[in-house]
Amino acid sequence: MKSYKLKKFHNYLVRILATMIVVIIISCSMTIESVVQPSSVNGGSVLPVTLNVQVTTNQSQTSKLMIAMLVPKLWNVANKASITFTSDITTGAQPMTVIPINSPAPNGNGLNWPNYLAAKIGNGGNRINDWEWVAFYSNADFSLGGNVTVNATVSIRIPVSNDNISFKLGYVVANSTDGLSESNRYGSFFPGCFTVNGTGDLIDFCNPQLATVEPRTASDNDIITIGFDGGVAANLLENASTIYLCATGITTSGTRIDVCSQVAASKLNSLGAGRWNVDIWPRKFFSLADNQQLEKLEYFFTDAAGANKVGYGGGKAPFLYTFKCQ
């Protein structure tokens, strides 16, 4: 009987200790409480973003604050954005600086911050693989005692490009000691689809697209990947067994070069689930002379016979792509 009571007491003790450990672990947290940003801005303007961040500690720690943003690559955020923050424990705006890409993230198994964030947090649901995570550290280290809650307001200013874009922005807050080691050691926030009312063809990261081109910024001397997603909308090729690219390259002098034959170089590879792609080197694909340079691309997709042709929105107008480096 005595042994039974001892065993019962021991079990209670273990449960109480386990609960205490859990409370200690989950009491150390970094969260983004809210994000204030406009739903759209005009091309070439500055996107102002405010993050309301809360940091709660369970033990004293000295670290830098880390703020990361998921953005389109063509905004060149690492070189153009600026970040500062104010907080309960600081006076005045505290500057932050982009983290060099050769700097490994804490607990990141050797990965730098952008790759660590991409592996752990992901792409935020963006449909075109032309996004990047850009991470910033506070210039100064900050010492916090145990069981302290600090509120910080992070101000971000991102000069956006002139491009017409819809994109799912994302934000992460963490610190230079814990990194993304545990889910409660960092906070993330994805406010939804954001639009830039710019110029040129819409680059829609938010919605499924019949056709995509990667990278979004490329010259005719890059290898570009042209993708077709036949399952997105009803179209003449949704059940095709083979699909070919039918394209016209338009040079800077206005010369149009048509390549619309169903040959190996223009055949798309099946990725399954109605998705296809082909990698082309435009200079070779269009047999450009040394003095020729492509400005634009108009393209369709066809079946093996070339009889069924799908263009923008599944219709008869071509998809458009503009070659540009910025």
């Binding site: 690559k73 910024t217 005719d220 480096c325």
Partner: peptide
């Protein structure tokens, strides 16, 4: 970068 400098090979 054979094309745009943003693209690294």
């Amino acid at each position: 970068s054979p094309g745009c400098t943003l693209n690294t090979y």
